[in-house]
Nucleic acid binder design. Sequence first.
RNA 1: GGAGGAGUGGCCGAGCGGUUGAAGGCGCUGCUCUCGAAAAGCAGUAUAUGGGAAACCGUAUCGCGAGUUCGAAUCUCGCCUCCUCCGCCA
Length: 449
Amino acid sequence: YNTVMLDIRFIRENADLVAEKSKQKGYEVDIQKLLELDNNRRELLTEIEQVRADRNRLSTIVVGEQPSSHKIEEGKKLKSELANLEDQLTSVNDEFLKLLKAVPNMPSDDVPVGISEAENKVTKEQGDKPNFDFKPKTHWEIAEGRGLIDKVRAAKVAGSRFAYIKGDLVKLQFALVQFVFDTLTSEETLKGIIDKTGLQNISPKPFTPVLPPLMIRTEVFDAMDRLEPREERYKVGSEEDNLWLQGSAEHTLGPMYMGEIIDIDELPIRLIGYASSFRREAGTYGKDTEGIIRMHQFDKLEMESFVNSEGGMLEHLFFVAIQEYIMQQLKIPYRVLQKCTADIGKPNARGIDLEAWLPGAGNYLETHTADFMTDYQARRLGIRNKVLNTGGQEHDTKSFPTNFVHTNDATALAPGRAIVAIIENYQKPDGSVEIPEILRTYMHGQTSL
RNA sequence: GGAGGAGUGGCCGAGCGGUUGAAGGCGCUGCUCUCGAAAAGCAGUAUAUGGGAAACCGUAUCGCGAGUUCGAAUCUCGCCUCCUCCGCCA
């Protein structure tokens, strides 16, 4: 796997490839225009730096000596010349950056080319679908009937796509959360997953649990390249507040280290965040309206990691392995999808979805997604790591080259959708629901709800 | 919400208009000395970016962004962050 360095130098040298791959992802980018602006920008920069050098030379005087009026006149001339050039640069640069930021990350070579999610490829099916000797119900038929979910009153209070989750389902959610935290903070468990999957050379370093802020500044949201589409986001407070509700813990975990240079021995940094997430679900009217599948507010356990640029792909595969492990522990049948170019998202190089089988609904439901961003987000956020020298040692503390880190994020578990899958797969003829064995200790031995 | 104080290199800390990318110290690296180590001495020790095959040269960066000035780490304004006191509050 080759690291895709999507900086302007890469684009300069691979203009056709970048245009082609952008198109595959559904983004039309005028690369020719971008390169023109780049040239323009660099010419101006050279000129400006020349004038600045002149200015610096001129304003370097012997201490105590006053500059001559001739020098001051000369300085004034340079000043206005510089102001003029800088104005030009600002406008060229703005346009340049706008176009540069519009270029999506390059898909990894194994991402199938496709124009819609219909072209995602199923790469694996795992787990036995349950056989019922009765007609299985949907999660909604079961939960509503038993008073575990109340959407009517929620609609009264907050509108559609909100719900009151009640009773045993609340306990079940916290059991799920505990189970996931225990899994991801155990080095031993992670080692087991690594061994079983056969991944080589990957650290079993445990995840650090995090409760992140649920709001995020406009600039940071944009730097993550997750602000768009804005109509999907909730803006909060007054204009000056400049804050949005996050749509995933990724949005506030990813920029945690922005602007920082990270020591080699601190990597990988692995975080497992728990947060309520908010989405407007614009344009989904009439879709997934039954039950709690698509809500404006839902809770999610999200994995996020920062690794050096050699380990990004491996970390991505590890994240998927963790997701599969969790589904297997819960004994929920699922399939794995490799997302196609149209579906992986602008900052992504690769994306995987896990979908749980819902016997009541008779279809699959996306429960997990894993995103690999290479250094794309890190470049926008300014997250670097020190680079090892040829001897494998870190360079001395004051002098070191740096690289952009690779970022990965992935759902560890979305309790809402996991609950849907559990209800449908573990239902009994009398409408009760068995509790997955792995969760029982977290529910004081309770075996059904 | 009210009143104050502070943000300088990996860390501590000087500088408050003119060769200051930034004194001094700590740390780190190399060398000298030593059988070795410590100590001491000497030297080196930020990042980004443009140009260059390279050596190297230019430019930017003292929380961030604007402004004043021939010249800004230093002056002015806005923003961010942190600290102290008062008020309010889960």
